[in-house]
């Protein structure tokens, strides 16, 4: 049943990522219109639960989606199986999660 769970997790994470990407692009274009500087943008994101939540969720979805996708590729192209495949998948997933959340923390943290 692992395959079925991974399959669903990858589809669900894709469904979360799609609207968030559009939101990200929309806000970016909107913010640039007024000629906001990095300082001014950070002033708005610091301490914001909303932006922390949005980007935190996005990073989670990316980490899941990419780890499962790369897991499939590693299994198909390099015939990785079992513990080695699991280890690589976890490393990729956690790596992305930590890097992503660090970036989110830098934008919303005080």
């Amino acid at each position: 049943m692992l395959e079925l769970r991974l399959y669903l997790a990858q589809r669900i994470s894709a469904a979360i990522m799609a609207p968030l990407v559009l939101l990200h692009l929309g806000v970016m274009i909107y913010a640039i219109q007024g000629g906001l500087s990095a300082e001014e943008i950070l002033a708005r994101t610091r301490g914001s639960l909303l932006w922390g939540g949005v980007y935190g969720l996005f990073v989670l979805a990316v980490a899941l989606h990419a780890a499962i996708g790369l897991r499939n590729i590693m299994s198909e192209w390099w015939s990785l199986r079992g513990p080695l495949l699991n280890a690589f998948s976890w490393i990729i997933g956690f790596g992305l999660l930590i890097m992503g959340w660090r970036a989110v923390a830098a934008v919303v943290g005080a």
Binding site: M1, L2, E3, L4, L6, Y7, N72
Partner: peptide
């Protein structure tokens, strides 16, 4: 058909 090796691949 939905176990490992099944339709999900």
């Amino acid at each position: 058909v939905s176990a490992n090796g099944g339709c999900m691949h």
